[in-house]
Every structure is written in C-alpha cells, then in structure tokens.
Deep mutational scan, measured.
Amino acid sequence: TEKEKEVKRLAKERGLSPDQVRELAQRAGFSPDQAKQIADEFA
C-alpha cells in the first residue's frame, strides 16, 4: 500500500532499527501484527 511504502521509505532514510520501524508503522495506523511484518523486513 501507499502508506506501507511511505513507512518503509522513512525507515530506510532514517536508518531505523526494526523496533523503531514497528513503532513508526503503528503510529501510521497499522495493526501490531502488520507493523511487526513490516519491521521484520528490516531485521
């Protein structure tokens, strides 16, 4: 999704850790499970 792409782009730009990616995703409105899946891509 657009929102997911945006979260991943920000995460890459900022060099976020997987935990930070998960927090960012949840703040963007993703469920905890979705946020974990997104964060796992950065693990």
Rank of each mutant, 00 (worst) to 15 (best):
T1R: 14
T1C: 14
T1G: 13
T1D: 13
T1N: 13
T1I: 13
T1A: 13
T1S: 14
E2C: 13
E2S: 11
E2H: 09
E2L: 13
K3A: 13
K3Q: 10
K3P: 07
K3Y: 07
K3R: 14
K3F: 08
E4K: 15
E4L: 15
E4Y: 15
E4Q: 11
E4F: 12
E4C: 11
E4I: 15
E4T: 12
K5W: 12
K5M: 12
K5D: 14
K5G: 07
K5S: 11
E6I: 11
E6F: 14
E6R: 11
E6M: 14
E6P: 01
V7P: 00
V7Q: 01
V7W: 05
V7M: 06
K8V: 11
K8C: 12
K8H: 07
K8L: 14
K8W: 08
K8F: 07
K8S: 03
R9W: 04
R9G: 04
R9A: 06
R9Y: 03
R9H: 05
L10D: 04
L10V: 13
L10S: 04
L10H: 06
L10G: 03
L10W: 07
A11F: 04
A11M: 02
A11E: 01
A11N: 01
K12I: 08
K12V: 07
K12Y: 12
K12G: 06
K12L: 09
K12W: 13
E13D: 06
E13P: 02
E13C: 14
E13N: 06
E13R: 09
R14G: 09
R14C: 14
R14N: 11
R14L: 15
R14Y: 15
R14E: 06
R14F: 14
G15W: 05
G15K: 09
G15Q: 09
L16K: 01
L16G: 02
L16M: 10
L16N: 02
L16A: 04
L16H: 03
S17A: 08
S17W: 06
S17F: 06
S17D: 10
S17Y: 05
P18I: 12
P18V: 12
P18N: 06
P18G: 09
P18F: 14
D19A: 13
D19T: 10
D19K: 11
D19L: 09
Q20T: 03
Q20I: 03
Q20S: 04
V21S: 01
V21D: 00
V21L: 10
R22H: 06
R22S: 06
R22N: 07
R22D: 04
E23M: 14
E23G: 06
E23A: 12
L24G: 00
L24H: 03
L24E: 04
L24W: 05
A25V: 02
A25C: 07
A25N: 00
A25E: 00
Q26K: 10
Q26H: 07
Q26I: 15
Q26R: 14
Q26V: 15
R27E: 10
R27A: 13
R27M: 11
R27L: 13
R27C: 08
A28Y: 15
A28I: 13
G29V: 00
G29T: 01
G29I: 00
G29Q: 01
G29R: 02
F30E: 00
F30M: 04
F30W: 04
F30Q: 00
F30N: 00
F30D: 00
S31G: 08
S31H: 05
P32F: 12
P32H: 09
P32Y: 14
D33Y: 07
D33G: 10
D33I: 12
D33S: 14
D33F: 07
Q34G: 04
Q34V: 11
Q34R: 15
Q34I: 10
A35N: 01
A35Y: 02
A35R: 01
A35S: 06
K36M: 12
K36N: 12
K36Y: 10
K36T: 10
K36E: 10
K36F: 09
Q37C: 08
Q37Y: 06
Q37R: 15
Q37M: 11
Q37D: 06
I38R: 01
I38S: 01
I38Q: 02
I38L: 09
I38H: 02
A39R: 03
A39F: 03
A39L: 03
A39M: 06
D40H: 13
D40A: 13
D40C: 13
D40P: 01
E41Q: 10
E41L: 07
F42R: 03
F42T: 04
F42K: 02
F42N: 03
F42L: 10
F42A: 04
A43W: 12
A43I: 11
A43D: 08
A43Y: 12
A43V: 12
